[in-house]
Computed example of a mutant assay.
Amino acid sequence: MNNNRTSKQQLGEWGEKLVASKCSCPRCKRARTLKRLPQNFKCADLICDFCGYLAQVKSSKVVTVTLLPKFVLGAAWSPQKQRMDNGIYFPLFLVLRSTTESAIYYLPTDLQSPALFIPRNPLSSTAKKSGWQGFRYVLSAAPEGAFVRIT
Rank of each mutant, 00 (worst) to 15 (best):
D85Y: 00
L123N: 08
V65C: 11
L107G: 04
Q80R: 09
L68S: 02
Q56A: 15
R136E: 12
L92G: 02
I118R: 15
L139T: 01
K81P: 00
P91V: 07
V62Y: 01
P69T: 01
S102E: 07
I88M: 13
L73F: 10
Q82P: 03
L107K: 06
T99L: 07
T126P: 05
W132G: 09
R136L: 13
M84L: 12
P108C: 00
W132E: 11
A103S: 06
A115C: 07
V72I: 05
Q112H: 09
K129T: 06
L68G: 02
A142R: 03
G131N: 02
L68H: 03
V57W: 03
V57L: 03
P79W: 03
T99G: 06
F71C: 14
F71E: 14
T64C: 13
A103W: 00
F90C: 06
K70Y: 13
A127M: 09
A55I: 05
F117I: 12
A142V: 02
L92M: 05
S140L: 12
R97S: 06
F147K: 05
K129E: 08
Y89V: 05
S130N: 10
S59H: 03
N121R: 14
S124T: 14
L116Y: 03
L67T: 15
Y89C: 08
L139V: 01
P114M: 07
L139N: 02
S98N: 04
K61C: 14
K81G: 00
S98Y: 01
K61D: 14
S124W: 06
G145I: 08
G74M: 01
R120F: 02
P69Y: 01
N121Q: 15
T66G: 07
F90L: 07
S125T: 07
T64Y: 12
V138T: 15
V63I: 13
W132S: 11
Y106A: 02
S130I: 08
F71G: 10
R120I: 09
G74E: 03
T64Q: 13
I88K: 12
G87P: 07
A76P: 01
N121Y: 11
S125G: 08
S102I: 03
V95P: 01
P79T: 04
K129D: 09
V57T: 11
L96A: 03
A127Q: 09
V65M: 02
Q82N: 09
K61P: 00
D85F: 00
P119W: 01
S59E: 04
S59M: 05
E144N: 14
Q112V: 06
Q82F: 01
K128G: 06
G134P: 01
F147C: 06
P143Y: 11
A75Y: 08
T126A: 12
D85R: 05
P143R: 12
S60Q: 13
P119F: 02
P114N: 08
A146Y: 02
S98C: 05
S140N: 13
P69W: 04
P69N: 11
K81L: 11
R120H: 08
P91S: 12
E101G: 01
K70F: 13
R97H: 06
Y137G: 03
Y89L: 09
V65S: 06
P114R: 11
L111C: 11
S113G: 10
P119H: 01
K128W: 08
I88V: 15
Q133E: 08
S130C: 10
E144Y: 13
K58L: 02
T100F: 07
Q80N: 05
K128V: 10
G74N: 04
R136K: 13
